[in-house]
Amino acid sequence: MQALVTDLGFDVLFRGTNFTRLLGGMWVTLEISLISVALSIILGILLGVVMTLKNPVTKAICRVYLEIVRIMPQLVLLFIVYYGSARLIGLKFEPEFAAVIVFTFWGTAEMGDLVRGALQSIPIHQYESAYALGMNRSQTYFSIVIPQTIRRLLPLSINLVTRMIKTTPLIVMIEVVEATKVARQIIDANRVASPNAAFGLFFVIFVLYFAVCWPISLLASHLEKKWSN
């Protein structure tokens, strides 16, 4: 009991380059999430517009895509892309690259569905009252439809972004050396000298994730309040 209370394993952090290594791992996480999020937003907006088309073929394709993403565990997707593609088409992706592909594949589908929902939630009367004022199609879109769509979309898409960030530890399974992987390496190396290192290191990782996601969450609820009508 005594040992538990006095040694929470934080000392390991400040031994050698451990702390910078951990931050380096966190940076890998952030890099992969940021690239995936950016790509997902761009591709998701395009997908969302396509999803509002009445064409039955595009509708069916989008539906299948969305269902696949919803049903498949992200981990399975990661394995398919990282290990499966190497087998199947002889392509050996860098694990970071495979991670970006899977996260973008996932994010694009969810973002697309959010964009579709937001676009379709603008009542037809909003278009009509703009047309009745003599506004043309593009004026109506840029002044009326898009601003309202963004307002509905932003809180939801920020939610998606935090979900994507906090799912990144999964990529350790395809050998990406990110924060939790670095932590485990450090724990292993200090097994004897510092048996409680696990608590200290994972607590710090918790704090790091919190520091990244909390402001994003705050921004979402702030915007939600500001734009509620």
Partner: peptide, 11 residues
């Protein structure tokens, strides 16, 4: 034109 449900732009 003035509509039954006003249709002001909420933003």
């Amino acid at each position: 034109m003035v509509f039954q449900n006003y249709e002001l732009f909420p933003h």
